[in-house]
């Protein structure tokens, strides 16, 4: 069941980032990043820690306000207007490293709350959408549980369901498996792989090279707040052009 918007020949750029800079005081996290993501594509961002990959991701939905530069989402230039940002964020799901589920709410309430107060869906519709998404991530039986009663992998899958329940056009993943015990990484990656197959536009910051190989249309290597290389996973792993990319790959692939 591919996304309807992905069947046509022409695909527009759903995310366009132009000359993006982000400074935290003296620290320059992003130094002029340019990036375009086509609709229905899966883009993976890799790079050493402190290279600005998470900052770039967080600038795409303005969770961090860029110091300078432009972000266009689906043809719309983001400004600092809260009303516009709330509307745009509704269309962009985000999954965090530490899940960030709401601990005082049940799993079902976690997945229905934003549908109700942001999308203004009636309770019944919100519930059925929530159950649909929980089914998709494989834990409908945990609907009544509280986040603290779930394993890390289950929590992250609920977080994915919570984002998907808003029917976003884009999904952002910020190191979704980094805080998980090794045996739980696969269950989360499997959900993400399914999502990629269905044609969701995804930007994924990750250290999981297996996922990048299997699902990514494009892979981006970042260092020092800049995109060093942007190509297909095959080319990046087999034929990296830049010295920094080669060094990084040799370190993480233990060659």
């Amino acid at each position: 069941m591919r996304n309807d918007q992905c069947t046509g020949e022409e695909r527009d750029n759903i995310i366009v980032v132009k000359n993006l800079h982000k400074h935290f005081g003296e620290v320059k996290a992003l130094n002029g990043v340019n990036l375009t993501v086509e609709r229905c594509k899966v883009v993976t961002i890799i790079g050493p820690s402190g290279s600005g990959k998470s900052t770039l991701l967080r600038c795409i939905n303005y969770l961090e306000t860029p110091t300078y530069g432009e972000v266009w989402i689906d043809g719309e230039l983001l400004t600092r207007t809260q009303k516009q940002l709330n509307a745009v964020r509704t269309e962009i799901g985000m999954v965090f490293q530490l899940f960030n589920l709401f601990p005082h709410l049940t799993v079902l309430e976690n997945v229905t709350l934003a549908q109700r107060i942001v999308r203004k869906r009636p309770l019944e519709e919100a519930r059925s959408t929530a159950m649909e998404q929980l089914q998709r991530v494989g834990i409908p039986e945990k609907a009544g549980a509280f986040p603290a009663q779930l394993s890390g992998g289950q929590q992250q899958r609920v977080a994915i369901a919570r984002a998907l329940a808003m029917n976003p056009k884009i999904m952002l993943f910020d190191e979704p498996t980094s805080a998980l015990d090794p045996e739980m990484i696969k269950e989360v990656l499997d959900v993400m792989l399914d999502l990629a197959k269905e044609g969701m536009t995804m930007v994924v910051v990750t250290h999981e090279m297996g996922f990048a190989r299997a699902a990514a249309d494009e892979i981006i290597f970042m260092d020092d707040g800049l995109i060093v290389e942007q190509t297909t996973p095959y080319d990046l792993f087999n034929n990296p052009q830049q010295e920094r990319t080669k060094l990084f790959l040799s370190q993480i692939l233990h060659k």
């Binding site: 709330n86 965090f96 960030n100």
Partner: peptide
């Protein structure tokens, strides 16, 4: 951040 990323004000 999680709440804002879901579009909540």
């Amino acid at each position: 951040e999680a709440a804002r990323s879901l579009g909540m004000s």
